[in-house]
């Protein structure tokens, strides 16, 4: 256990996470979450969908960020500065993968707002070339899981830890929000989170696994967890060859290192109700939470 992971997952990290309920506020308003039982189902569904996707993106971002840190150490601290910085391309590409997994504009906006605040905070706490190149590559704010993975890399965490932090974030925010919105017993809600703990670990492992194993055979056996990702683009021959993209030339690390095909196949589990909740939340007249 890396101590930095505790800081990263701590709700007291001043990065604005407390302002978001992850759809819980709107679910309470709509009457689909009324008490601890509904909340438990809400959190399990959220973890299985948005949580798994966030964990996988965070793991990918952490791996990319760690490569950026290594590269800059090898070339004596010069991580490249201009527009032409080759490290910026993969950040944009990973951020685009997050975009493609977030159909709801309201959710994209919430994810970018949280990502921007996190990077702004993290750059002061854990100064790192990973965060600098991400901030340059996506100046308006990367998706939160991408920002979280980059922050984890800056803090010295590994991709599995980044995934765990993302899975944790995906349920603790909504759980705390529900306590405030419904006046639930905080101890009872923490009991729900404790019950979810094994699933958090399983989600993080599935995300970590998805980053490095993908199958070109869509007929591969049914699994619910760990997720078996699909090869996304039938034309992409690289998808069937896991070795391609593993560049060892330091100049190429961060460009070809994370092959697009690898990211393409990351989990994309969707929660249609969360999309609807996020959009109707935007239209609500009084809101305690931003999302």
């Amino acid at each position: 256990m890396h101590a930095a992971l505790l800081l990263l997952a701590d709700s007291r990290l001043p990065a604005g996470g407390h302002a978001h309920s992850g759809g819980a506020e709107e679910a309470v308003r709509a009457g689909t979450v009324t008490g601890p039982d509904d909340l438990a189902r809400f959190l399990r569904g959220r973890l299985a969908t948005a949580g798994l996707v966030a964990a996988a993106l965070a793991a990918a971002a952490c791996e990319l960020g760690s490569a950026a840190v290594d590269t800059s150490e090898r070339v004596d601290g010069d991580a490249g500065t201009g527009e032409g910085d080759p490290a910026m391309l993969p950040w944009r590409r990973l951020d685009a993968e997050a975009d493609a997994r977030t159909a709801s504009p309201a959710q994209r906006e919430a994810a970018r707002t949280q990502g921007r605040l996190l990077v702004r905070t993290a750059r002061r706490i854990w100064p790192s070339p990973a965060l600098e190149s991400l901030a340059r590559a996506v100046p308006d704010g990367a998706h939160h899981p991408v920002a979280l993975g980059a922050t984890a890399a800056a803090a010295g965490c590994d991709p599995g830890q980044a995934a765990l932090a993302a899975a944790y974030w995906s349920v603790t925010g909504p759980a705390t929000a529900a306590v405030r919105l419904l006046g639930l017993d905080p101890v009872a809600v923490h009991r729900l989170l404790a019950d979810l703990a094994p699933s958090l670990g399983a989600t993080a492992r599935a995300a970590r696994t998805a980053l490095h194993t993908w199958t070109a055979d869509p007929g591969a056996p049914w699994t619910t967890n760990p997720d078996v990702p699909w090869t996304a683009d039938p034309d992409d021959r690289r998808a069937s060859s896991p070795d391609i993209g593993r560049a060892t030339d330091p100049d190429l690390i961060g460009v070809e290192f994370m092959s697009d095909a690898c990211w393409a196949a990351l989990p994309a589990t969707t929660a249609p109700a969360l999309d609807l909740l996020a959009e109707s939340h935007l239209r609500a007249e009084t809101r305690l939470f931003v999302s």
Binding site: G23, A27, D38, R41, L43, G45, A48, A50, A271, L277
Partner: peptide
């Protein structure tokens, strides 16, 4: 694990 979740299909 996620059947009947208000986050997914309600």
């Amino acid at each position: 694990a996620s059947d009947g979740s208000p986050a997914m299909y309600g």
